[in-house]
Design a protein around this nucleic acid. Structure first.
Lengths: 140, 140
DNA sequence: CTTTTTAGTTAGTTAGGTTAATTAACTAAT
DNA sequence: ATTAGTTAATTAACCTAACTAACTAAAAAG
């Protein structure tokens, strides 16, 4: 049988595909994929980032980010300005990107509430801390 | 700011990429990708399954499963026998597949222990239950 | 017996990853 | 001022894993 540790990661993995499918269903209406959306969320919080910073935060290589940013740019959701260091590009959400971002966040908030409906606040906090712990251990 | 619900899914997502990278690094030595490995694990538990059952469990479409099974078959990790219903194929692990499966599970067990090191058992159980709860809510 | 459904495959497409190589810009040490 | 080395971003070529659409063969329903 599985140990508790194995059980945790097994459950973690089980949630992933159905959750992704739900997210993509919501995002489809905005012609966004999950990875595009993830970067928009990040920009919403950080305001301005360079592609290199985004790549580092997302733990993917820079060329992957280049492609996603190109598509977000075509859709008019981000704007690109040259940085002080002329090698850099500063990426930020446009007004339209910001608006879509807020709209999607509202929708997802409802989805998330449904998915966690009936969970006690203390348990939720506990699970968040556990995930943060795992995340930290992953980065060393 | 984010609600606790949003915070939870945000942390959930943050863990995914680095975890996947770690898993793939472990699996590389066996020339296995994560999605191939996921199906091997499933077969380890269920013993025999049809491609359609696997597709349903993994929440992906049948053609995706066909390809993965073809590769696992080439590598000699699974065997395929015709079902009673002649349309069906019964998929099971070969002895070699079973052996590799056990070996990988042992390695991952250590990884998982490291990632969850210092977590109290009660908190771990709690988080598992929470994930199960989310999984259930996702399927309705 | 015909029709419809189901299981699996094939073919073709797409998104999002990877590495390797390139250009441009910056930094530091002659 | 020149040179050597580094960093930011891009492009190209490739891979994996997903998708849909269209197909064959078998089973089930009428």
């Amino acid at each position: 049988m599985l140990t508790l540790h194995q059980e945790f990661f097994s459950q973690y993995a089980k949630v992933y595909r159905p959750l992704l499918n739900k997210l993509n269903a919501e995002l489809e209406q905005y012609s966004l994929s999950n990875s595009q959306w993830t970067i928009m969320k990040l920009l919403k919080i950080e305001q301005v980032m360079t592609p290199a910073e985004i790549a580092h935060r997302q733990q993917v290589e820079k060329p992957s980010i280049t492609k996603i940013l190109q598509r977000l740019n075509e859709m008019g959701f981000i704007e690109v300005t040259p940085g002080e260091d002329k090698r850099e590009k500063w990426i930020r959400l446009t007004d339209s990107g910001e608006a879509v971002c807020i709209e999607i966040m509202e929708r997802l908030k409802l989805l998330y509430e449904n998915l966690l409906e009936g969970i006690k606040e203390a348990d939720l906090e506990n699970a968040i801390n556990l995930l943060m712990h795992v995340h930290e251990n992953l980065s060393k």
